[in-house]
Structure formats: structure tokens, C-alpha cells
Amino acid sequence: MTLRPATPADRAALYRICLETADSGEDGTHLYRDPLLVGHVYAGPYLTFAPEHAFVLDDGEGVGGYVLGVLDTAAFSARLEREWWPALRAQYPDPVNVPPGERTPDERLAHLIHHPAAPDPALLAEYPSHLHIDLLPRMQGRGQGRRLFDHLFSSLRGAGSPGVHLGVGGRNTRAQAFYWHLGFHELSRSPGGALLMGLRL
């Protein structure tokens, strides 16, 4: 099992893994009409603008897991506003006139493209970095998630980060338990049960 830096050649694999773990860790292929949409939001910008903190696992059958990190969330968000979201906004209409409860999964992500969440300065003062991690089933339960985390934490710590945060859905209890075990703690919880978790580095 090889852990290595992600490269532009890994983009298709990252998008595929992102989609195949998009349903609270399960395969979300059936949920999205556009198979690239999830990757446009949660994988593509990280590989494009923060490749120094992007790492993949390759088991010989291909890339089956990744961790994507950002050192400075505020600066990253500002760059996406300038260089990533505009092209996607031209491609995906804003579903602002569709009531939130009636939006399809594609429309929910399109809304996020047009209205990305603004970083909380109080949060970023202590946890300026953030990450996304996904592993396909063949990579799970073998210590590879911890291996990816340790590698990213070392990378972020070496770049001067004091802390990192991540979000996890309310239904993804398996991932929540894993993050608790790694030392993350709850920072906030949405009405739907999604957690924002943080870890001091």
C-alpha cells in the first residue's frame, strides 16, 4: 500500500472516490445526475490549489483513498471565490428559488457552489486548517485512515498550522467514532446532526 503525494493525473480517481463515498461514507453514485459535481466541490479545488497537502493511497489496483488538506482556510476560500467558483457558477444554475427541502442532491451542491459557507474567524483563529478524507471499502479497516491522517498532520504541522477542523454528516457515525478516537472534539453541531470537529496540532 503506497502513500504518495497526489498528482494531476489522480484527478479522475479522486472524483470517483469522492462520488463513491458521498452518501455518508457509502456509494453516492445513485444520488447524483452529474457524476462530477461532488468532486467539483470536495476534491478538485484541493488538488488544484493545495497539492502540497494532498495525498493518496495506491494498492496496485489504483488509487483507493485520499486525504486533502488546506493550511489556511480563509486564504483558500478567497482564492476559490476568485478562481474556482466562477466557472462552476456559469455551468450550474443557482437553485435559490427552489425551497431547500425540495432540492435534489445536485441542486444542494449547486447552491453550495453559489453560496459557499463563510469561514468563522473565531474557529479559524485556533483551527485554521481543514481537510477531507475518503477511502473506498477495500482500503478501510486496515489502519490506512490513521496513516493518511498522520501524514497530513505532519505536513500541516511542518507548515506551521496550530489546528485543523473537519465536518462530518450526522448519519456517518462510523466516521464520527473514528475522529473521536483520533482525538478530535466537537466544536459545533447542526440541527440535522452534522458535526464540526477540531484537533490541535
Rank of each mutant, 00 (worst) to 15 (best):
L31F: 12
W85C: 02
D134L: 02
E81I: 03
L152I: 14
G25T: 12
A87H: 09
D58A: 00
L109D: 11
R189N: 10
E52Q: 15
P35H: 15
N97C: 05
H132P: 07
L80M: 15
R189Q: 10
R16W: 07
P51T: 07
T173G: 14
H115Y: 06
W85V: 03
A13T: 06
P86S: 04
G62I: 02
L3F: 15
Y46L: 08
P105T: 11
A125R: 14
R4D: 09
P95Y: 03
T29G: 09
Q144Y: 14
A54T: 08
Q91F: 08
G65C: 05
A117R: 14
S129A: 15
A177E: 14
G183A: 07
L19S: 00
P8R: 11
P95Q: 06
E107M: 00
E81H: 08
L37T: 11
Y127H: 02
G163D: 01
G60K: 01
G60N: 03
P116G: 04
G145C: 13
V70T: 05
V96C: 08
V168N: 02
A90G: 14
P51F: 05
V56M: 08
I133N: 10
L57F: 08
G101F: 07
L195F: 10
L136F: 01
Y32W: 11
T173I: 07
R171F: 11
L135P: 10
L136D: 00
D120T: 05
Y46K: 04
R103C: 01
D94R: 15
Y92Q: 12
P99G: 09
H181G: 02
D150G: 12
L156Q: 02
A87D: 11
V41L: 10
L187D: 00
D106S: 01
D120I: 06
G44F: 09
G44K: 09
A13V: 08
L135H: 04
G192A: 15
H132M: 10
E186D: 13
S190M: 11
L80E: 03
R200H: 05
P116H: 12
T7I: 01
R103A: 01
E126V: 07
A117K: 10
Y66R: 02
S161L: 03
P45I: 10
T48F: 02
L68H: 10
P95C: 05
L135Y: 08
L14I: 06
V70E: 00
E26F: 13
M1W: 11
V96W: 06
E52Y: 09
F149W: 14
H185V: 14
L80P: 05
S188D: 14
L14Y: 05
R157A: 14
A6R: 04
P162H: 00
R138F: 07
F149P: 02
Q91G: 03
L19Q: 02
T2S: 07
G44Q: 15
D134H: 03
G101L: 04
G192I: 05
V67N: 13
L71Q: 00
H114T: 06
P5F: 04
L182T: 13
R142Y: 09
Y15D: 13
F153M: 13
R11T: 08
S129R: 05
A118P: 00
H115Q: 05
S154Q: 12
I17L: 06
T2N: 15
H111Q: 02
N97T: 09
V41S: 05
M197R: 12
Y92D: 11
E107F: 01
G145R: 07
M1I: 15
P45R: 14
E20Y: 04
D120C: 06
A74Y: 00
R11H: 12
Y46P: 08
L187S: 03
Q140M: 14
L123R: 13
L37I: 15
